[in-house]
Nucleic acid binder design. Structure first.
Length: 231
DNA sequence: GCGACAG
DNA sequence: ATCTTGTCGC
C-alpha cells in the first residue's frame, strides 16, 4: 500500500528547508522500542555518468539477521545534493522501492542522520514520517553535535548532543573501525535507536540491514547498465 | 568574513 | 556518492 502523500516533492531547496521546519514538529522521538522481527535496510547507489540512481531496500529477519526480501528501483536523480537536504534526494526513490515490498518491516534503518540534523529532520525522520513507521538513522560521518570518542569494543557508545540536548549516539559498530552516528528518525527514542543498532551489528562497520542494502544497490547498478565500460 | 557541510 | 589494486593485518 502506498503511503499518504505528505507534501509535493517537486520543490526548490529553499522550499525544502521550509518543509523541514514544518514537519520536524511531527517527529516522535519518545516512543519506546516495541517488538520488532523484521528490519528494513535502505541505501542508494549513484550511476557514474548519468543522473541515475538505484534505491535498494532489504528486509532482514532480526532472529538470524538473514535477508528475506529485496526491492530495488532505478530512477532519475531529481534533487541536487545539498548538505542538510539529503532526504529530498533519496526519500522519493526509496518510497518507490518500498511500494514493491510484500513483507511489512517493523522498523527501517538508513544510511544517514535522523534527528542529528541542523533542523532535527534528517533522512530517517523524513522517511519515517512518510511511512509512519519507526526509523533509525545510522550515518558514517558527523553532521552536527558534540560527542566524546566511544570505547574500542563493538557496541560501545557515547552520547551525541546538540546544545546539550541528546539527539543520538556515536556507536562503535565493530572493533577496530571508526564509529557510526546513530539517531532516531521517527517513532523511537534515542535509547531504542541505539539498542536496535546493537542488535543488528554483524561484525562490520555497517549494521547488517544497511550493509546488505548497500550491496544490493551496487549490484543493481552493475546489472542496470547496458553499456559496459569502454576503453 | 571564515569554516563546516549526511550521501 | 564516486574514481581505484594491491596489500598489510587479525
Amino acid at each position: 500500500m502506498s503511503p499518504t502523500p505528505l507534501h509535493d516533492w517537486d520543490v526548490s531547496p529553499d522550499q525544502a528547508v521550509l518543509l523541514q521546519a514544518e514537519f520536524a514538529g511531527r517527529i516522535d522521538t519518545s516512543s519506546t522500542l516495541a517488538k520488532f522481527d523484521l528490519i528494513a535496510g535502505c541505501d542508494i547507489a549513484y550511476d557514474l555518468v548519468e543522473p541515475v540512481l538505484y534505491a535498494a531496500v532489504v528486509v532482514v529477519r532480526v532472529a538470524d539477521l538473514a535477508p528475506v526480501e529485496t526491492a530495488v528501483v532505478r530512477a532519475g536523480v531529481k534533487f541536487p545534493y545539498v548538505p542538510g537536504l539529503l532526504s529530498f534526494r533519496e526519500v522519493p526513490p526509496l518510497l518507490s522501492a518500498w511500494e514493491s515490498l510484500r513483507s511489512e518491516p517493523d522498523l527501517v534503518m538508513l544510511d544517514g542522520q535522523g534527528i542529528a540534523h541542523p533542523r532535527r529532520f534528517g533522512l530517517a525522520c523524513h522517511l519515517g514520517l512518510w511511512l509512519d513507521r519507526p526509523t533509525v538513522g545510522c550515518a558514517k560521518t558527523w553532521l552536527v553535535g558534540e560527542y566524546a570518542e566511544p570505547g574500542p569494543t563493538a557496541g560501545d557508545a557515547a552520547p551525541l548532543s546538540v546544545d546539550g540536548v541528546p539527539v543520538g549516539a556515536v556507536v562503535r559498530s565493530a572493533t577496530g573501525v571508526r564509529p557510526v552516528f546513530v539517531s532516531p528518525g521517527h517513532k523511537i527514542d534515542v535509547a531504542g535507536a541505539v539498542a536496535v543498532t546493537r542488535v543488528v551489528l554483524g561484525g562490520h562497520r555497517h549494521p547488517v540491514p544497511t550493509r546488505l542494502a548497500h550491496m544490493a544497490a551496487n549490484q543493481a547498478r552493475a546489472a542496470g547498465r547496458v553499456d559496459p565500460p569502454v576503453v
